[in-house]
């Protein structure tokens, strides 16, 4: 039987440490090595931070729902929010080979999610953004 976990946060970045504890727990349950656990944690932080900072209008409380499923040899994470439609899979990738002068300051968050996760998929359903990510372990 698959093991399912859930964490509900709000659009408040001060809650990011709760996400780190949640991911750490799943990493332990899935017997993930420390290095993979750290990068998965990073990808989750980036994806969730993006929702917390940009999905909802300022001064509006909004929810971020994080589900994790431990499957054979992989973990699936699903992040759901009811904010403005945003498809991170369509965002243009950052060029990491640019020189210092040409290098923009931002844009690395989604780039890290894409690079760390093995699969990433987005859909908009019933007024919600649903981002699914799979990490092979």
């Amino acid at each position: 039987m698959n093991r399912e976990y859930q964490l509900v946060l709000h659009n408040d970045i001060r809650q990011i440490p709760e996400l780190a504890t949640f991911v750490e727990h799943i990493a332990n349950e899935a017997n993930m090595d420390v290095s993979t656990a750290l990068s998965v944690n990073l990808a989750l932080e980036e994806a969730v931070t993006n929702v917390m900072l940009y999905a909802y209008p300022k001064n509006t409380k909004g929810q971020v729902d994080i589900k994790a499923s431990i499957l054979p040899e992989k973990i699936r994470f699903v992040i759901t929010d009811s904010g403005i439609p945003f498809d991170p899979t369509e965002k243009e990738d950052v060029n990491v080979d640019l020189s210092l002068e040409d290098r923009p300051i931002g844009g690395l968050g989604i780039f890290l999610v894409r690079n760390i996760m093995d699969q990433i998929a987005y859909c908009r359903k019933d007024g919600k953004n649903i981002l699914s990510m799979i990490k092979t372990i």
Binding site: S35, V94, V96, L108, F111, L112
Partner: peptide, 10 residues
């Protein structure tokens, strides 16, 4: 592990 992130991001 941080070196890996540095490598990934250039």
């Amino acid at each position: 592990d941080i070196r890996k992130v540095f490598m990934m991001t250039g």
